[in-house]
Design a protein around this nucleic acid. Sequence first.
DNA 1: GAAAGATTGTTGTTGACGACAACAATTGTC
DNA 2: GACAATTGTTGTCGTCAACAACAATCTTTC
Lengths: 164, 164
Amino acid sequence: MTATAAQSSPRKRAGNGAAPRDIADDIGLDALVGHAGYAVRRFQIWIFQDFIRTLGDVDIRPTQYSVLTVIGANPGLSQMAVAKRLGIERARLVHLLDSLEQRKLVKRVKSKADRRSHALHLTTQGETALAKFKRLAAEHERHVEEKIGKENRAQLLRILAGFT
Amino acid sequence: MTATAAQSSPRKRAGNGAAPRDIADDIGLDALVGHAGYAVRRFQIWIFQDFIRTLGDVDIRPTQYSVLTVIGANPGLSQMAVAKRLGIERARLVHLLDSLEQRKLVKRVKSKADRRSHALHLTTQGETALAKFKRLAAEHERHVEEKIGKENRAQLLRILAGFT
DNA sequence: GAAAGATTGTTGTTGACGACAACAATTGTC
DNA sequence: GACAATTGTTGTCGTCAACAACAATCTTTC
């Protein structure tokens, strides 16, 4: 849905039942413009779609990528720690890890120190795979740069740095 | 969440074997930082939660608000036009409108020009309600300003203007 | 003017995702 | 040792995007 991003032509329309034909592609959002949440939502949908498409060959979704990245950077973390850090529920992480473990990318090692928890590690296969994922993710980031501009992307990261 | 500050307690943690320990609350995201998608996702979650909370009394969610706003600004639109403009599936819009129509905020008028489509209008009750929603939404926007700063919010809107 | 094709609203299914609740096993605390 | 808290797990519920299929209705084409 690459919106044509046409500039708003001042089209004021009184919508009665008479043939709203021409405006189908040029609806004024009016009040919606100026809402940060709406812009962010649309942008986030675009970004995720591009990420999913760019990492489509390896079948890795954004959440899976974030889990792999955190585990790769901090081997031995418990599920609780990973969930808390990424802001996802531990109940949800269970399924994510089930999938990743089934694909032999991650292994759950029973922790000796705390026999309730699992220490999470990448498999050797998982490490080489993650390296490839990171290359594809970098390609995705280049798409973002092409979309909004290099400086704007940097600005964005700076503004939202507090949320990571 | 909102662990902006280092609330680190000098707690000891059971790391096993390999490297890291005592990192439960201070996990390095490393590669995740620098990914626009991750920051945007976290920010979008925060924004929606604040929106839902701020408009909690009137029980209006972001998507519902966007639908009402578009219909209010462009009365007589068809469901297809609204769906396309907001980037939501027409199948999904059906349920959204069912809910809004049940609450007497929106009415589907059978279009005479095209008997397949419905012309969407706000009810008088819907218009007064939307006015209140807009006031609350403005309050929500102020929360965003407090969170990221007034200039940063303006920057954000400017950067993401192409997605609205 | 009738057949073929496209569009609109609708219903349904699937899967990812967040929020909660309950549970067994284990740990920590008193 | 009794009791509370934590960890992983299972389950349910609701939101949301992506499809597929369908009837009714337009549009196109011969």
